[in-house]
Simulated scan of single mutants.
Amino acid sequence: MAHRFKVREIAQQSGLSEATVDRVLNKRPGVRETTRAEVMQAIADLEKQRAQLRLNGRRYLIDVVMQTPQRFSDAFRAAVEAELPVFAPAMLRARFHLWETGSTAQMVDALGRLRGSHGVILKAQDDPAVAEAIDRLVDSGVPVVTYATDVPASARCSYVGIDNHGAGVTAAYLMGQWLGDAPSDVLITLSRNVFRGEGEREVGFRSALRNSGRQIVEVSDSDGIDATNERLVLEALEANPSVEAVYSVGGGNAATVAAFDRLGRRCRVFIAHDLDADNRRLLRDGRISVVLHNDLRADARLAMRLILQEHRALPPEPVRPAPIQVVTPFNLPL
């Protein structure tokens, strides 16, 4: 068994003899499973303690770079700031570079201007120029974690977030259950097609509804900004009178609700993503049906942990997609 500790250290930690520890480590017969478990727990405890020593007094500066609607960046910023103290005795600080709408060139420029960073949490377009900017950061010793939407062709160390394709399939399943035999077509709203995560949600949703006979009407390029989204949704609803359901991939949900209201149209089912302030209010008021959500604080904690792992300040742990929470007005978390 590979390990980084002397037999004497493990014996002291576990309270077992060195001979017993040696038998466990070398997988010799005649050792009880409970004894093996004690040795493994001792090694895990030593790993944690070593990590604490590595973290003691260290300072890390994390940059959060995101093009996203303000309601989402506000929620994620609060999550990051709440999780910073978790990494004590290390001292983590965060800088935030946030904007709602912009070009790929703006994103590349923002990444190129980072100085003194120990790691980047990034929500960006899946574009070759962005991938190259990420590669330059990684080559300079700055690890990058993509968040919510991936840039897989880059040298980023990991992606943090939900399985977006699975989220789209989940939305389609719920849509089918709630609509039942109602002949409604479905409006799908995206903030912008350049975000891979939104595209994966859309593909999952469309594939799961392919044989339903329902037409899917797409609205995109609003950047999730309410004024733009309301105008685009109004145009789509006027052109498609059979739309009575919405899958919101990219936000702007208050504007979508307002568009239905302006036309006096009924929305039978409204499925959204993320528990930002707008969606909490809309869900509580019964204006949207359900929110597909993931714990932003858990996401922020994992993203920062992955950056520290790249600096060998913490032991590696496996990364799994964040679980999708199906939130209704009756299980809305505080």
Rank of each mutant, 00 (worst) to 15 (best):
Q325W: 15
R50I: 03
T101P: 00
D276T: 09
P85G: 08
D261N: 06
C157I: 15
L53C: 10
A208I: 09
S289L: 06
G199C: 12
G57E: 04
V246P: 00
A155H: 08
N164H: 06
Q41S: 07
N56D: 06
V291F: 13
E38N: 10
D274C: 07
E100P: 01
G102W: 11
P29C: 00
L174C: 09
Q106L: 13
A148T: 05
A78I: 02
G161K: 10
L179G: 07
E38R: 15
G286F: 09
L314G: 03
G251I: 03
V86D: 07
D127Y: 07
P323E: 09
P69C: 04
V108H: 11
N56K: 07
H273D: 00
I324F: 13
L302K: 12
S207K: 11
S154N: 05
L308F: 13
Q125F: 15
V203C: 03
P128A: 11
M107E: 12
A2D: 02
P29M: 00
L61A: 14
A227R: 15
N193Y: 10
S17H: 10
R71V: 14
G251S: 02
R4T: 04
V291A: 07
Y159V: 01
G286W: 10
G116W: 09
V39S: 03
L190K: 06
P128C: 11
E317I: 10
L275A: 00
D223W: 15
V86A: 12
H3G: 06
A82E: 12
P318D: 07
G112F: 14
P143M: 14
